[in-house]
């Protein structure tokens, strides 16, 4: 197309050489080309995702209860009674908006993961806001979902501050193409959203080892709060996570999907949520563009009849990161640009 030629002329050339996927192309060539509109509700509504996952035997965080109507808001008290920790989410929320994590309850006072104290009244107000559609994608009425809190796997605990780290895997036509781990930190208020300041660690598809890490688009070497060296990060049960991401993509039928997985201490890998419009910062965290990998998958004219194991083997062979494979002490040239 004409735009491609244009891109080679402008200062965008170097981005293009790196195979960086831009917002416009993501929207036109991937999201709207591979994600049928009618499948969106499956991922935009966390309740529907949960039901789908249940049907396909995919583990998700335990559902404690749902509040659907305004007059049920009074039920919040009974719903959370006796719970030590839980989280409240809007079913149709996006970008982590409206997610309230209560990590501790003492004498009727609810403590958020960042230490903020909330009363039952505050909880009810939050639920009421969720129902009114304040956090939902299009402002439409929503339901509030109460979920059991996930406890981070021991091996990952030191890598995250307050929140639970999750793994984002981009799955394209059933192939996991790129992965990153998102670590919450003090700046991000315990949230694992990169635009709120969480640390993104690129993960080598082949090995599950860290490639490099970024925070607010800048390279970082260690976790800003815990001081843990991020290069040593290696995700346990990596092949299982890859399998799980493929299964998630297969059950939705979406061609270009962001799968968010967590490793629970007790229940192992589980699906946190799905995203039909996954962000682009994952490229920064990996120091690699998505385009070469996406094009490779696109080269299959038909969606190949490959089992999940075959697909995972394919991507582990072809999409291994050069940086991570060296496995020696990482060699960074932080901030120093040669060009």
């Amino acid at each position: 197309m004409a735009w491609h030629r244009l891109m080679r002329l402008l200062p965008f050339r170097r981005l293009s050489e790196q195979g960086v996927l831009g917002m416009n192309r993501r929207n036109i060539s991937y999201i709207s080309s591979y994600n049928p509109r009618e499948l969106y509700p499956l991922v935009d509504d966390k309740l529907k995702t949960k039901r789908l996952a249940l049907h396909h035997g995919v583990t998700t965080p335990e559902l404690l209860g749902v509040i659907e109507y305004q007059h049920d808001v009074t039920r919040v008290g009974t719903l959370v009674e006796g719970l030590d920790n839980f989280c409240i989410k809007p079913a149709k929320g996006s970008g982590g908006k409206g997610i309230l994590v209560v990590s501790r309850v003492e004498d009727g006072v609810f403590y958020r993961s960042n230490g903020q104290e909330l009363s039952l009244r505050d909880l009810k107000r939050h639920v009421s806001n969720i129902l009114a559609g304040l956090f939902s994608l299009s402002g439409s009425p929503d339901v509030a979902v109460f979920e059991a809190l996930i406890e981070a796997d021991d091996s990952l605990r030191d890598y995250s501050f307050e929140g639970v780290p999750d793994v984002r895997i981009i799955v394209f036509r059933g192939f996991p193409v790129m992965a990153m781990m998102r670590l919450s930190c003090a700046v991000s208020h315990g949230k694992a959203n990169l635009h709120q300041g969480a640390v993104g660690v690129g993960i080598d598809i082949a090995s599950g080892a860290a490639v490099r890490a970024v925070q607010r688009n800048k390279l970082v070497l260690s976790h800003p709060d815990t001081g843990k060296d991020l290069q040593s990060l290696r995700i346990p049960q990596w092949p299982t996570l890859l399998d799980l991401s493929c299964a998630c993509a297969d059950m939705t039928g979406l061609g270009y999907l962001g799968v968010d997985l967590v490793l629970d201490r007790r229940r192992g890998p589980m699906l946190l949520e799905l995203n039909a419009r996954p962000g682009l910062t994952i490229q920064l965290a990996n120091g690699a563009g998505l385009l070469p990998r996406l094009r490779r998958i696109e080269a299959f004219t038909q969606v190949p009849q490959m089992t999940i194991a075959q697909r995972v083997a394919y991507v582990r062979k072809h999409f291994a990161s050069v940086d991570a494979q060296r496995n020696s002490p990482p060699q960074f040239v932080p901030e120093k640009c040669s060009g």
Binding site: L15, Q18, N217, K218, L219, L284, G287, V333, C337, S338
Partner: peptide, 10 residues
Amino acid sequence: RFQPMLGERA
């Protein structure tokens, strides 16, 4: 936004 990616392997 993607400046960090350009600095490295140009």
